[in-house]
Design a protein around this nucleic acid. Structure first.
Lengths: 232, 232
DNA sequence: GGCCCGTCAATTGTTGACAATTTATGAACG
DNA sequence: CGTTCATAAATTGTCAACAATTGACGGGCC
């Protein structure tokens, strides 16, 4: 009776019966971590050799990577790792703002009291983490994802959940991995998370949505500035 | 310099270089039109024989159908045409409400004057269509899609556009094809479209978003009632 | 010297056969 | 008679070879 299936992956792909899925997870990790740089050409034969499998499953893996927009494919020409430009990231953040805003609204309506108190506990843990690590990027980043994941889960909306964590968050993590992260924002983000959680606790749907949208559009602004400074 | 690429398919798949894509379009049409009923088991060998191709490209087609949620797949067990239940459709309509609301906001901000007047012309054409056909379902339905497609296009947001018309609208059309359609709603929908267009013309982002969200949540209410009446 | 066309290598698209897994069938047992 | 285990059929997952298409290289022509 466990409705909350696990987020997918603590570390490597543990549950991965089929070759194509293992391969998919592996390449996905390489793309997100930057080990396969943006724009890198992906040659099926080479990767098949590298992973010691045939081209069939590998093709399937690449097709799935294409669907979540981590690789771009041209029919007979081949496929390359996606090139994240400013416009694309803006589109992503705007879509995320829209969907997570709705998720926050639904969470305020549907979360159980137990879930809410668990959410508040999580935020306290994150606060401790920030104090101890002085805004160490890794913890903060994963903590951020934790929080947003719980909101999406609480929305009870499968489509929103899958798209946020199957597509959008992969791209955002990929972007973070190479644009760095301003540690000063850790405290700001935590405060905003607290406000959102409080709105949810008060069952104020409207406020929860508005705060979430501000939170995300604010995050985009900082990312945008980083990307701008990076391009000169 | 034609930014408005066509919505994909008048009738059959005209542009379809590769077997897998042709096959994908063909099966997709069959699923949406209901020729492959919900819950139908999809056997790779059978379909490959039916289309006169090998299992390879057909597998790819099925994988893509899985990604847009028209078929459900279980690793070693096989794949079936998705079964649209009330909960799933609610999730879809809520996600659509969120994304199209944002699209309307962006459209109000970004549409050119020429695009806006073209949009108003389109609505007049739809009005004539309704008068002439007395709410004939087909015209209305396609007209509805036309309108929403233009808004999504005007948002200049690739992610929103692709997800609305690559995933969500396919599922909604599939749902319509077998839940019928109350023709009385044609006039209501048109009026709401007019209000949205006017808000866009006035560059009132806030109002455009709110009206779009009301329009879609209203549409869901009527669909929900139809689904309820159908289940007894 | 620059542009165009034919040829060639490299890579993807497609195929049919083989292996692994699941579901269904049926017999033996409680 | 119902349940359970083993066997068998059907179906999916995987593989290696073949065909078709793309992009690049080089020679010829203007």
């Amino acid at each position: 009776m466990n409705e909350t299936s696990t987020p997918a992956n603590p570390g490597e792909a543990l549950e991965a019966p089929t070759l194509a899925r293992r391969c998919f997870e592996s390449i996905k990790a390489d793309v997100i971590s930057g080990q396969l740089a943006q724009g890198t050409k992906i040659v099926e034969s080479d990767l098949a050799l590298k992973y010691g499998i045939s081209r069939g499953p590998l093709r399937e893996a690449i097709h799935r990577l294409e669907q979540i927009k981590l690789v771009v494919r041209i029919p007979h020409a081949g496929s390359r790792v996606v090139r994240l430009d400013s416009k694309m990231m803006e589109d992503i953040y705007i879509a995320r703002e829209s969907l997570e805003g709705m998720a926050a609204r639904l969470a305020a309506r549907l979360m159980s009291e137990a879930e809410i108190s668990a959410l508040l506990d999580l935020l306290e843990a994150h606060a401790d983490g920030i104090d101890k690590t002085e805004g160490r990027a890794y913890f903060q980043s994963e903590g951020d994802i934790d929080f947003h994941y719980r909101i999406a889960l609480a929305s009870r909306n499968q489509w929103i959940l899958e798209n946020l964590h199957g597509e959008l968050y992969q791209l955002i993590r990929m972007c973070r991995h190479q644009s760095g992260r301003s540690p000063a924002r850790a405290q700001i983000a935590l405060d905003q998370h607290r406000q959102i959680a409080n709105a949810i606790a008060r069952r104020d749907e409207e406020l929860a949505e508005i705060l979430m949208r501000r939170h995300i559009s604010g995050a985009w602004e900082t990312v945008r500035k980083i990307l701008e400074d990076q391009n000169d």
